[in-house]
């Protein structure tokens, strides 16, 4: 399928990735004409794009272009920020998540998130994982133990912490903390996992562990990941969106976007000749 004129939203909407040969997956998240303003200044302008189910979609772009902002629109975390105005629609599984009746808490239970900066709670490792379960009202200790172990194993952290589950999470290294945050996010089995530069502060070994993890998790979750690192996007993602200054420049399968970009701007960025 040829790349289409991406500045035309209707063209993008029609060009759903589901029809693509190498992805049989249906679109799960449909963003349409999304603009976001912090006070008077626009951080996102008229973004339209569809994110397929159970694949990894990457957002790339220069710093400050609005990647995090776009990601946070998907679990409505920008709601809590003062003076934010949002236009356009975001539909997940056909449900407009910005319509007035939507229960934001329920949404966030099904759309997990891992942040750029590891932010474990100042509690024990165990309690960090258990937090999401506890706020859902889970009391059963046995069940909880099982889920904590499974989540830590999925995040490839179990062997490192199994002897100190009740020690403070703040005693872990940066990479371990970030994996703990991933374990915490997947413990509640969300359907979508948003990851904001999960490996930006980590060394290569920790980074590759997390990349392996993402590839493993993709079986179960729909993953949207923000990254600064072009190689990383190429390694792990199926689709890639390139943003610049709040606008979506190009969206395509990762292989096409990197090998055969439609826009000069994209080519400059992915080849490192940007700005």
């Amino acid at each position: 399928m040829a790349t289409t004129d991406l500045t035309n939203p209707s063209a993008v909407a029609r060009r759903s990735p589901s029809g693509d040969a190498d992805s049989p997956n249906a679109p799960l998240i449909e963003i349409e004409g999304l603009s976001l303003y912090y006070g008077p200044s626009a951080a996102l302008r008229n973004i339209t794009l569809s994110i397929p189910e159970r694949l990894v979609t990457a957002f790339i772009g220069p710093s400050g272009c609005g990647k995090s902002t776009l990601l946070r629109c998907l679990n409505r975390l920008n709601d809590a920020v003062e003076n934010v105005r949002i236009e356009g629609t975001v539909r997940i599984g056909g449900c407009d998540i910005y319509s007035p009746g939507v229960d934001v808490t329920e949404l966030r239970k099904r759309v997990g998130m891992v942040f750029q900066k590891a932010n474990p709670f100042p509690k024990s490792i165990y309690e960090n994982i258990a937090y999401g379960l506890r706020v859902r009202g889970l009391r059963d200790r046995k069940l909880m133990d099982g889920i904590v172990e499974r989540s830590l194993r999925s995040a490839a952290l179990w062997d490192e912490v199994k002897d100190r589950l009740h020690a403070s999470a703040l005693g872990l290294s940066g990479g371990q903390q970030q994996r703990l945050c991933i374990a915490r996010a997947i413990a509640t089995r969300p359907e979508i996992l948003l990851m904001d530069e999960p490996a930006s502060a980590l060394d290569p070994v920790a980074t590759s562990k997390i990349e392996d993890l993402i590839l493993a998790l993709k079986q179960e979750f729909t993953i949207v990941i923000v990254t600064h690192n072009m190689q990383q996007a190429a390694r792990i993602s199926d689709y890639t969106a390139f943003l610049n200054q709040g606008e979506l420049i190009e969206f395509n399968t990762t292989s096409r976007l990197f090998t055969n970009p439609a826009k000069q701007e994209t080519e400059d960025y992915v080849t490192g000749r940007f700005g």
Binding site: L77, E106, K109, F121
Partner: peptide, 22 residues
């Protein structure tokens, strides 16, 4: 830290739960 509040909210805790537990 704002990160702690956001982490809690992103895990599906309500505002009140976030206040009381974090």
């Amino acid at each position: 830290p704002a990160g702690l509040r956001e982490a809690s909210l992103a895990l599906g805790a309500t505002r009140l739960q976030t206040i009381i537990r974090i």
